[in-house]
C-alpha cells in the first residue's frame, strides 16, 4: 500500500512536477481554445456546404474520410508525412489542423442534424416576412438548431479536449507530454496521476454542463 502511494500519489513528486505540468496545462488549454472554435466553425461550414447540391457529394466523401481516419494517423501524416512534400508544420499547427479537421467532420454532422431538425415551416415563416436566406439561417434556423443539438455539441467538445493529448506524440509540450516527461525524470507515476486529475478538473465542468443541458431540454418539452 505504501508502495502504491509512493509510486502513484507521491505529493512531494507532484509538487516538484507542478511547474512543468502547469505549463503543459496552459498548452492544452491553448490547443482546446483554438481547436474547438475551429472545429465548430469548420463543422458549420461543412453542414452548410452539404446543403448545396453541387457540393454535396464532395462534402460527404470528405467527411466520411475524416471520420474514418484515426485522428492520430491524421496527425502523424500532417506532422511526419507532409515534410516529404516540402510542407513543414510546427507541432502546434499540425495538432491544431489535425484536431480541427477531425472535429469539423463530427461537429458538421451534429450541425446538419440540428439544421434538419428545424421544421420547414420556420423557413417559410421567415421568408414570408421578407427575410433573405442568410438572415433566416442566422436569426431563425441556427439558434434553434444549436439549441436542439447543444448536448451533442458539448459531448463532442469533451471528445476534442481529450484528443488534445494526442499532440504529445508530435512532442508538443501539452499536459500529457509534460506529465510523461516528469515521469521519466522522476521514475515515478505520480505526475501522470496529477495530469489525470487536471484533465478531470478540465472536463468535469463540461460533463456537468452537459447533464444540465440534457435536464433543461427534457424540461422544456
Amino acid at each position: 500500500m505504501d508502495l502504491l502511494i509512493d509510486q502513484f500519489f507521491n505529493t512531494a513528486i507532484m509538487a516538484q512536477a507542478w511547474p512543468i505540468l502547469w505549463r503543459g496545462l496552459q498548452m492544452t488549454l491553448l490547443l482546446c481554445l483554438t481547436a474547438v472554435p475551429l472545429g465548430l466553425l469548420g463543422g458549420l461550414l461543412v453542414a452548410l456546404a452539404g446543403r448545396v447540391r453541387a457540393l454535396r457529394w464532395t462534402v460527404v466523401a470528405l467527411v466520411d474520410l475524416l471520420r474514418a481516419v484515426p485522428p492520430l494517423v491524421l496527425l502523424l501524416f500532417l506532422y511526419a508525412g507532409l515534410p516529404f512534400a516540402g510542407i513543414h508544420l510546427p507541432p502546434f499547427l499540425a495538432a491544431l489542423l489535425a484536431l480541427g479537421l477531425n472535429a469539423s467532420s463530427f461537429y458538421g454532422e451534429i450541425w446538419r442534424a440540428g439544421i434538419d431538425s428545424v421544421g420547414h415551416g420556420q423557413w417559410e415563416a421567415a421568408r414570408s416576412t421578407g427575410l433573405g436566406h442568410r438572415q433566416t439561417l442566422t436569426a431563425v434556423i441556427l439558434p434553434q438548431a444549436a439549441r436542439a443539438v447543444l448536448p451533442d455539441l458539448v459531448s463532442n467538445t469533451i471528445e476534442v479536449v481529450k484528443l488534445t493529448s494526442l499532440a504529445s506524440v508530435v512532442a508538443l509540450p501539452e499536459l500529457l507530454y509534460s506529465a510523461d516527461m516528469a515521469r521519466s525524470v522522476t521514475y515515478n507515476a505520480s505526475p501522470l496521476m496529477l495530469a489525470a486529475g487536471l484533465y478531470l478538473a478540465l472536463l468535469w465542468p463540461l460533463v456537468r454542463l452537459l447533464a444540465r443541458f440534457e435536464h433543461r431540454s427534457a424540461g422544456s418539452r
Binding site: Q122, A125, A126, S128
Partner: peptide
Amino acid sequence: NAMRRRIGMVFQQFNLY
C-alpha cells in the same frame, strides 16, 4: 424579399419562432 414583406402570410401551423 422586398415584395414578400408587403404580402403578409398566416399559416395553418402558426410557424412562430
